[in-house]
Amino acid sequence: MATSALRLDNVDAFYGDSHVLQNVSFELGEARMLGLLGRNGAGKSTCMNVGMGLLAARRGEVSVFGEKVTRLSPEMIAARGVALVPQGRRIFRSLTVRENLIVAGRKPDAGSNHAPWTIDTVFGMFPRLKERTAQMAAHLSGGEQQMLAIGRALMGNPRVLLMDEPSEGLAPQIVAEVMATIRKLKESGLSIILVEQNPNLVFDVADDIVILNTGGVAVVSTPAALRQDDALLRQHLGVF
């Protein structure tokens, strides 16, 4: 079995008294992409928040490349090579595009064999951001904000990238651009969890699929197998 980049073991998480994740276990293999699917409220974003340390698991363990990070703060988890592209993008609105990238800059881990991400390489991937380098992030279009959120995550030179609904609220053409970027990132060897509502987007790029339903893992499978199983998708996602 290859090393797991990120692993959740029997995780229970709560928002107040609300039990939102129940005994959730799955793992993201190194240099693989895991598609995390589920209806609204199934617990997808909560998994991302637990993985990033924004929400503490009340039970169970979270580990990154074999190291337990369950009780660590987000900044300590970021220092271990995990980055989040959050739902709703959450770019720093009162900072310029350049500042959004600068504040997230972190040197790659020693021994990393990937070329490090810098402002120049991020601008190389998203030339439109370069044109708007001095612009306040609040004034960017939705697509540009998404590119900035991805660029900001890459500036941390992560080994694991958590992407929470990067296509949300974007025009179809921009979604295609974002998905092309995600494909490139996967090819670069990053381990990625891609959370989406739309299974078709995920099936095209992911290696493995986990479907959540009402806070628990309902299905662990592959895109190829799931494409053949409309009944299962209808049962858990209400589509097809």
Partner: peptide, 18 residues
């Protein structure tokens, strides 16, 4: 810029490693 990022969104500031 880090301070302003913290004012904007403290949780996200921590997520990006600040």
């Amino acid at each position: 810029a880090m301070i302003r990022a913290g004012v904007d969104d403290p949780d996200m500031a921590r997520v990006v490693g600040i």
